[in-house]
């Protein structure tokens, strides 16, 4: 497996405000009608963008090229579709900063090498305001110091230890790890009554 360490993400930020932004909004189900993830980035937040008109941040050219996405609480709730973090990552986003994330979305993002770090609600809105006030503001998420900073402010960020370690040492892609100990896996399978037979 390719080993890619993710120590920090720097760049401009795309602020998307709102609590409980579900994965149907991130990528509507009609775009899941495909056998690949190709081209999903074109439909990121498509219906929200259409309804918000020019006011959706993703429609604003000032945020073009953003590498961080700043969100609020319970981002990515709902459907388990990996298409949501796929669309985000394929759009050029390399880390998401928010107040909280749904568990499945978080796990899917880790598997793509897309860190989702949490900050306090106040920090999330401050970071969003900073990006809205000056879209060219440069942010740095440092996974070693666990801070998200601009030239003028810095906030502590949080990431569960296992996920953080995975990004720092490049082991975030779990397949290799899971394939390491076939004999132990076999032992567990052979111990389970429903696989071993109901003797």
């Amino acid at each position: 497996m390719p080993i890619e360490k993710i120590l920090a993400v720097s760049g401009t930020a795309l602020p998307v405000r709102g609590t409980n932004i579900d994965t149907d909004r991130i990528i509507p189900a009609r775009f899941l009608r495909s056998v690949s993830f190709d081209g999903l980035e074109r439909h990121l937040f498509e219906d929200d963008r259409a309804q918000a008109g020019e006011s959706h941040p993703l429609s604003n050219p000032a945020y073009h090229g953003a590498t961080l996405l700043v969100v609020n609480a319970n981002f990515g709730c709902g459907s388990s579709r990996e298409h949501a973090p796929q669309a985000i990552r394929r759009r050029g986003i390399r880390a998401v900063v928010g107040e909280s994330f749904s568990e499945i979305f978080f796990g899917n993002s880790v598997a793509l090498g897309l860190p989702c770090v949490t900050v306090t609600p106040e920090a999330a809105t401050d970071l969003q305001s900073a990006a809205e006030g000056e879209p060219r503001t440069s942010f740095t998420l440092d996974l070693q110091t666990m801070t998200i900073s601009t030239a003028t402010v810095s906030f502590p960020a949080h990431l569960p230890a296992a996920a953080r370690e995975g990004f720092l040492d490049g082991s975030w892609d779990a397949t290799g790890l899971l394939l390491e100990r076939y004999t132990e896996v076999r032992h567990v399978a052979d111990r389970l009554p429903y696989l071993r037979g109901w003797r």
Binding site: N108, T175, L178, V185
Partner: peptide
């Protein structure tokens, strides 16, 4: 529920 990369992991390793 899991995402597609995890479906891949389960197919590959059952874990």
């Amino acid at each position: 529920g899991i995402g597609t990369s995890q479906v891949r992991d389960v197919l590959a390793s059952q874990c």
